[in-house]
Nucleic acid binder design. Structure first.
Lengths: 346, 346
DNA sequence: TTTATTTGTGCAAACGTTTGAATAGGGCCA
DNA sequence: TGGCCCTATTCAAACGTTTGCACAAATAAA
C-alpha cells in the first residue's frame, strides 16, 4: 500500500474481484450480491479506503466544489457571508474554494481562471470596486455556467442575484433619525460606482422627501475609501461649517465610527446633539460608545441564500435546462436601534 | 467544441499532431520545433484553451491546493490569518479550500477527510476547542503528510507550528498595567484546555511575581465561552465584592469589552479607577470608548508564515526527505497602548 | 431437454493530462 | 552503402474512478 492511499484496485486485487465490482459494491448498486458488498465494505473500512475525489471529478466531470470570490476576507460582512456559504456547502457535500480580490480587477479575472481550471461546479461572486466592465462574467453566463452574484450585483441580462434591500434599509434608517427629531442630516455615501451606494443614497433622499425636508447636496459626501480616518476628516470639516447638522447617516459602520470620533472631538454629544446611524451591523457596532444604531444586512443569510440558489442552478444545469431565468432575491434589512440615535426617551 | 472546454486532444486533432506534442509545446519542452510551438500556442490562445487542473492533479498526484481548517470564519483574528494564507497561496499558484469547524470535533474530522479525499497537498490547522485527542492528526503526521498548526498547537512530536509568544504578550500587558499603578489585577482567562490560555495566564502570573504582588487565585476566572455577556456578568460579580480590583487583563478583546461595559455600569471610570488591557487587537478595539489597550498577534503575519512553512514542507516531501524536524516558529506580539490603560499622563 | 430470464460479475473505454520509451526521417561521416 | 547520431514526433501507459455492455452461471418457464 503506497503512502496511506488505498485504491479501489488494491481492494479488488486483494479480494480477487474486478475494480468495477468494488466500485459498485461501495455504492450499493443493484446487482451486486450482498455477500460481495459485505466483503468489500469490510475491507474498505479496515484499510480505511478514501475515495479519490480528483479521479471522480475527472470521470464524472463534476467536482462538488464551488468557488467564492469576494473583495476581502477581513471584513465583517463578507466573513459572515462566507460563513453562511460554507455552512450550506458543507451540508450538501460541496467544498468551498476561496479567493479574495483585494478590490483588484486583474486579480478577479485571474482567480476566476484558476477556479474554472479547477473545474468548479459553480461560482459565487461579489465583484471588486474596480470592476466596471463585466465581459469576463458575461462569457460565463452565455455558456450557462452556474453563477450567483451577491451584495454587489452587475447590470447584466440573465443573472441570478442575491442582494439586500439597500434602499429600504437606508430609507428606514433616515426615517428613524427624522422621527428622533433630526432635520439636518448628513449622508456619508459609499463609492459611487457600486449600485449599493446608489440605492442607499436614494433611500436617504426619499426619506427626506417624504418628510418635506429640502435636500442639501453639500451634505451628501462620497467616502470612496471607506476608512475611519477618511470619515473622521470629512465629518470634522462639515461640522465646523455652519449650519451645523444634527444627524449623520453613514453608508457603513466604519465610516459611522470615524464620524462619531470626530463628533466627540468637537465636543458634540451623541445622540443629544447629533444622531448617528450606520449600515451593516459590524461586530463592533454594539460595543462602541454610545452603541451604534445601524442597518443589519444579515450576511449569514445572504451567504446561505446565495449558495442554495447556486446549488439549484448546478442541479438544473445537469437536467439540461438551458433557459436561464433572470432573478434577484432581495432580502430585507433590519434597523437596529441602539443609543447613538435615540434622542427621545420613552 | 463542447460547452466551452477545449482540450489538448481537440487542439491535436485540429493540427494533425499528437496530444503529447501539444502538451509539450504548451510547456516549452525541448525537442519541439519552434514552428510547432508557435502553431500550438496560437491555436490554444485562439480557442482560449484552459488546462484541466483536475486531470493534471490526477496524473501528477499533485493538486496545488491546500486546506485550511479554522474554528470560525467570523472572527477578526482568524479572518486576518486567512487573508495572509490566501495571499501567499495565491502568489505561489496554490488554491485554498476552507472549512470552519464551529469548534466541533466531529466537523473537524469530517472536514479533514473530505479535504484529503480532494487530494490537498497540505493542511493548515487551528483546531477546535473540543479537540483534546490528536489521533486524527497523528495519523497524518506519521505518514509525513505536510501539516502546519497555527495559533492553537497540539502537544505532539514532530509537528511544525506557528504561534505567537502568548506568554510574553501577557507578561508585557500586565507589566504595563502595573507600571500604570495597578496592583489589584483581575485576569479573565480563556478556555483551560487551550495552550494559549495557559501561556497567557503564566505571563500574568510572572508579571505579578516580578513585581512582588501576591497572587490571588480568586482573581483568575475562566471565561470558557469568551462572549461579551459572560465577561460582563463575571466582572460585575467580582467588582461588587471587596476588595475592589483596579485592573483587568482579559485574554481576549471581546471579554475586555464586556468587562468595560460592566465597569461603566458600576460607575467605575476607565482608566482612572480601573485599567483594562485585552488580547488580539480586534478591529473594534480602537473604536470603543475608551480605546482598548491590547496585545496584537499580527494574524496576517501568522497566516503568511504558516503558509510559507507549509509550502516548504510540501516541496521537501517531493524531495523525499522523510525526516521531519520538529519546530515551532514563535512570532512576537506587540503591546498596543491605548487609553483604557493609560493612568499616568506624560 | 431446450429456451428464456434473471443475477452477479468482468471487460474495456472514458475523463484530460503527462511522460518514458520508441520511431521515423533526415544528415553526416567513414 | 552502411552505421551513427540528431531532431521532431508519436505511442502507449498511467493516474483512480465510473459505466455501458457483454458474458457466464444459475434459475425458471416451456
Amino acid at each position: 500500500m503506497k503512502l496511506g492511499q488505498v485504491t479501489i484496485v488494491d481492494i479488488a486485487k486483494e479480494l480477487n474481484i474486478s475494480p468495477s465490482t468494488v466500485s459498485r459494491a461501495l455504492k450499493d448498486y443493484p446487482g451486486i450480491s450482498d455477500e460481495t458488498k459485505e466483503k468489500v465494505k469490510a475491507l474498505a473500512a479496515k484499510w480505511s479506503y478514501r475515495p479519490n475525489a480528483v479521479a471522480m471529478s475527472l470521470r464524472r466531470s463534476k467536482s462538488f466544489t464551488i468557488g467564492v470570490i469576494i473583495p476581502e476576507v477581513v471584513h465583517f460582512f463578507f466573513s459572515t457571508v462566507i460563513s453562511g456559504v460554507e455552512e450550506i456547502a458543507f451540508s450538501n457535500g460541496y467544498n468551498v474554494i476561496l479567493c479574495q480580490t483585494n478590490e483588484s480587477l486583474a486579480r478577479e479575472k485571474s482567480s476566476i481562471e484558476t477556479m474554472l481550471s479547477n473545474q468548479i461546479d459553480g461560482l459565487l461572486v461579489s465583484f471588486s470596486k474596480e470592476t466596471v466592465d463585466f465581459e469576463h462574467f458575461k462569457k460565463l453566463i452565455d455558456i450557462n455556467f452556474p453563477i450567483v452574484f451577491f451584495d454587489r450585483v452587475p447590470d447584466l441580462e440573465n443573472t441570478v442575484n442575491v442582494t439586500v434591500n439597500d434602499f429600504q434599509g437606508a430609507f428606514e434608517a433616515v426615517k428613524h433619525l427624522i422621527a428622533q427629531g433630526c432635520t439636518k442630516i448628513v449622508h456619508l455615501a459609499g463609492p459611487k460606482n457600486l449600485d449599493i451606494s446608489k440605492q442607499r443614497q436614494k433611500g436617504y433622499m426619499e426619506a427626506l422627501k417624504q418628510a418635506n425636508i429640502p435636500l442639501n447636496q453639500d451634505w451628501i459626501i462620497e467616502c470612496p475609501k471607506g476608512t475611519q480616518e477618511e470619515s473622521f476628516q470629512i465629518t470634522k470639516e462639515i461640522f465646523e461649517k455652519s449650519p451645523v447638522p444634527d444627524g449623520v447617516f453613514a453608508s457603513n459602520d466604519i465610516a459611522a465610527a470615524g464620524s462619531m470620533m470626530a463628533l466627540k472631538s468637537l465636543g458634540l454629544k451623541i445622540p443629544e446633539n447629533v444622531g448617528v446611524v450606520g449600515f451593516s451591523d459590524w461586530q463592533f457596532s454594539a460595543m462602541i460608545d454610545p452603541p451604534l444604531s445601524t442597518v443589519s444586512q444579515h450576511g449569514f443569510n445572504i451567504g446561505q441564500t446565495a449558495t442554495k440558489l447556486l446549488l439549484d442552478l448546478i442541479d438544473k444545469k445537469k437536467e439540461a435546462i438551458t433557459t436561464r431565468e433572470h432573478r434577484t432575491i432581495v432580502l430585507e434589512t433590519e434597523l437596529i436601534i441602539r443609543q447613538s440615535s435615540q434622542r427621545k426617551k420613552f
